[in-house]
């Protein structure tokens, strides 16, 4: 035979999946939330996202090229995803210098110091966010809102936490809050990506449809948050906020759908995902209700990221025909 034929072991066909395609789908899923945030916060939100993403890509390129000396990894889109997610965790009026610094920590410390994609134990975007939150608390928590009569300056979570600390009752503060605004993203202060629950959920549906993620992690996180906060609310609705408030505010949906589902830092089977999701839900509510910070999902995800290797070791998928010993 003139032309050479290939001889290799089966299977001889491969699905359409690729790392780049999955990452691209995550970006597509984030488009609705991005549009809402640019509409609400204006050009500033757009530039924060662009600067953050460009910095992440640049740092990954430089580190891969000059420190790790490996092949170029930009084309798998993962640095872009980290960049956009980090930007979604920042307030719109954050100084650009901090954006670049956050990107450096996210990519340099959170990802590349472990060897790059696939090897980092913690979600890189959250490493960047938490670094900025702890180091520059003022810049990270001052929100400006362009909508005139909106609550500017404080997120609903921070507003409620402050009010409850002052001894006010829930019924006193409820008139100040609008659930429909929280859902659409209008007139509510917050990080770029946490203001519009509806747009984020639209992206969730897209991710499920494209089979990028399964429902397990988001549903277990949000379900646990709802159940836990529901119990507290049931005990004393004047002291604790309702489950709906907990789900629609802060980074609950952004965290549950886009951050906690990061492949690299989440468990590798359904049972593990359930444990991980429940853990994140419980810790988030604990921090929100009794912790020092108004929002706790970033910390909750990072804490559970640390538990993932343990979960992977001890929680196994359901085997076909497993024999009980």
């Amino acid at each position: 035979m003139e032309n050479k034929i290939i001889v290799s072991p089966s299977p001889h066909v491969h699905g359409e999946e690729s790392t780049a395609r999955l990452m691209r789908d995550v970006l597509i899923a984030l488009i609705p939330a991005f549009l809402v945030t640019v509409w609400v916060y204006g050009a500033r939100a757009f530039f924060v996202t662009v600067v953050c993403t460009a910095s992440c890509v640049l740092f990954e390129y430089l580190i891969q090229r000059f420190l790790l000396k490996g092949k170029n990894t930009i084309c798998n889109y993962s640095a872009i995803v980290t960049g956009v997610l980090l930007a979604f965790n920042l307030p719109a009026n954050i100084p650009f210098g901090l954006v670049v610094l956050g990107a450096l920590v996210a990519i340099g410390v959170g990802k590349m110091s472990f060897g790059g994609l696939g090897r980092n134990p913690f979600n890189p975007a959250l490493v960047g966010r938490v670094f900025l939150l702890l180091s520059f608390p003022v810049a990270m928590t001052s929100f400006s809102s362009p909508v005139p009569d909106a609550m500017s300056g404080a997120t609903p979570l921070a507003f409620v936490k402050e009010a409850l600390k002052k001894g006010l009752n829930v019924s006193d503060i409820l008139p100040e809050l609008s659930y429909s605004d929280m859902f659409t993203g209008l007139g509510k202060a917050g990080s770029l990506g946490e203001i519009a629950a509806g747009a984020l959920l639209l992206g969730f549906v897209y991710l499920l449809w494209r089979k990028v993620i399964t429902w397990h992690i988001p549903v277990f996180i949000l379900g646990t948050m709802a159940v836990f906060s529901g119990i507290l609310w049931g005990i004393d609705p004047e002291k604790y906020m309702s489950p709906l408030f907990q789900l629609l505010t802060g980074g609950a949906i952004l965290g549950a759908v886009y951050m906690a589902t990061d492949y690299v830092t989440s468990p590798m089977n359904k049972r593990g995902m359930a444990i991980y999701g429940i853990g994140i839900g419980v810790i988030t509510i604990l921090i929100r209700v009794w912790g020092a910070y108004p929002e706790g999902i970033s910390f909750a995800i990072l804490i559970m990221n640390a538990v993932v290797p343990l979960i992977n070791r001890y929680v196994k998928p359901k085997r076909f025909g497993a024999v009980k010993k």
Binding site: G118, Y263, N269, P317, R319, F320, G321, A322
Partner: peptide
């Protein structure tokens, strides 16, 4: 081949429930 991103799609695909 690229690096493993631990997406666990192989785990979900395995008809014998292996890893």
């Amino acid at each position: 081949p690229d690096v493993c991103i631990k997406c666990a799609k192989c785990v979900s695909a395995c008809p014998m429930g292996l890893e």
